[in-house]
Design a binder for these strands. Structure first.
Length: 296
DNA sequence: CGTATATCCTGGGCGC
DNA sequence: TGCGCCCAGGATATAC
């Protein structure tokens, strides 16, 4: 489940292995992986053929490779997407979806994605509201909290205007990007905030502290090389991350909270799960939550 | 318009 | 051994 730290690990790896190289052949093995490239797989491949990769970039969970044509190859890894750099003679992965060959006949870039929630597209760069050049599909994605231009005060003000719960807000990529279910739960645990706390009721200082914890947990995971689950996520060269041992709340239902030893609880939340400490993160007054997984 | 919910999709794991 | 169900969840379309 790649979130910001995992995506950034992939970007760094790709930068080293593919920046400066020229794409030759592109093979789309599964049309769903390019479903958001509306002009089709053939057009996707044609826009890349002969193009040199000039740089890599990322915002939130999106990453892209800029091309010498002024366009970019945009990637979202979804739940299980991987971008692997492999020798051409290496056997195809079971869930290989797109293969990129280079004119130097060296290593290939491969998009592997079991669950096919990830996607790739080629798009022109456009200028966003903040004056940055981003692929069109990224225009509505907010800056992520590791971006130097992220505005803490504007975020706090936006939170206070909202009528929603804090975890929904953390997962809203148009408000703050890069955070998924795992790091949302971790940041809330560190902040001692229940996921259902109303955004409008948070004090400015609480928002500042929450942002501090968000940055800390993302930064620590980035240093560790990303969180790895089920072997589905590996970094660009196939090495798993190790952050799972640093998780204090996510996936720890029934285990003792490391602060107070109370068993971590699991609540149904947005058709998935939310993990928190019943004592450190008390439920806000008036909020009733069904326990266990959400009904399907 | 703002917020909430349904939907997409696969296969490993597990109970029977 | 095999069947069927559970489960993971980001982004988007649709509903309220």
């Amino acid at each position: 489940m790649p979130e910001l730290p995992e995506v950034e690990s992939v970007r760094i790896g790709l930068d080293r292995w593919v920046a400066g190289r020229t794409v030759e052949a592109v093979e789309v093995l599964h049309p769903r992986s390019v479903r958001r490239h509306l002009s089709g797989a053939g057009d996707f491949a044609r826009r890349l053929a002969g193009r040199k990769i000039t740089a890599t970039a990322r915002r939130g969970k999106y990453m892209w490779l800029t091309l010498d044509s002024g366009e970019a190859l945009l990637a979202h890894l979804g739940m299980s997407g991987q971008l692997l750099v492999q020798p051409p003679q290496r056997a195809d992965e079971k869930h290989l979806r797109v293969r990129f060959g280079f004119d130097d006949r060296g290593t290939e870039l491969r998009f592997v994605d079991q669950r096919t929630f990830g996607h790739l597209m080629v798009e022109p760069l456009v200028t966003d509201a903040g004056g940055a050049a981003v692929p069109g599909a990224v225009r509505h994605i907010a800056l992520d909290p590791l971006d130097p231009a992220f505005d803490d005060d504007a975020f706090a003000a936006a939170l206070r205007r909202k009528r929603t719960e804090i975890k929904r807000a953390l997962l809203d990529q148009s408000l703050i990007s890069g955070i998924g279910n795992i790091y949302a739960d971790e940041a809330l645990w560190r902040s001692r905030l229940h996921w259902a706390r109303a955004t409008g009721g948070l004090q400015r200082r609480q928002v500042a502290e929450l942002l501090g914890h968000v940055r800390a947990v993302l930064g620590e995971a980035l240093v560790e090389g990303g969180t790895s689950f089920d072997g589905l996520y590996v970094d660009v060269n196939g090495e798993s991350g190790y952050f799972e041992r640093g998780l204090k709340a996510y996936g720890r239902a029934g285990s003792a909270c490391e602060r107070c030893r109370t068993p971590i609880r699991r609540d149904a939340f947005m058709n998935r799960s939310s993990f928190s400490c019943p004592k450190c993160q008390p439920r806000p007054r008036g909020v009733r939550v069904p326990s266990g997984p959400a009904p399907r």
